[in-house]
């Protein structure tokens, strides 16, 4: 019986039950909140990017930052069809997390603009990054600099 339990424990310690990655955007105080809502065109602002790897193996992530408007479509199967304004790559071991400050600025004006963060991961078979279906967004008003 003890041998059976020991064998099962040895087996299951190498198995990840539900693999998943994490993506989080934190405000300038490293908390969920205090996100910038109104900005001037070209104004620098800081956010914190959080990425976690619980895929059961080493992963190569790429976070793409894109800009859209209120009618832009993005969901867990469709990424935003826009050019990235920034990208952040990171390789993480299993169960490793990464919190990194990022400084961005938006060089166009608009109301209810979507600042979209998409998580992509590197597929070693296709040798290309693929959309994981995980994304976040912030609504921002950007007005012209005086």
């Amino acid at each position: 019986m003890l041998a059976l339990i020991a064998s099962a424990q040895y087996y299951y310690q190498h198995v990840t039950q539900e693999p998943f990655p994490e993506l989080g955007i934190l405000g300038p105080n490293q908390k969920i909140g205090d996100y910038p809502a109104s900005l001037l065109e070209g104004q620098n602002f800081t956010l914190y990017l959080y990425v976690g790897n619980h895929e059961g193996k080493v992963m190569f992530f790429n976070v793409l930052v894109k800009l859209g408007n209120s009618s832009s479509i993005i969901n867990n199967s469709t990424y935003l069809h826009a050019n990235p304004i920034a990208s952040y790559q990171i390789v993480l071991l299993n169960n490793q997390t990464w919190l990194n400050p990022i400084t961005l600025s938006i060089n166009e004006t608009g109301m209810n603009m979507k600042l979209v963060f998409e998580l992509w991961d590197y597929n070693t078979t296709t040798q290309a990054f693929q959309y994981t279906g995980i994304w976040n967004q912030l609504y921002i008003n950007v007005t012209g600099a005086a």
Partner: peptide, 18 residues
């Protein structure tokens, strides 16, 4: 990364390489 991923699959310790 592809090499590193393969090394991990084969039981390699890739912490320093990451």
């Amino acid at each position: 990364f592809r090499n590193l991923s393969m090394a991990e699959q084969q039981g390699g310790n890739v912490t320093g390489l990451v």
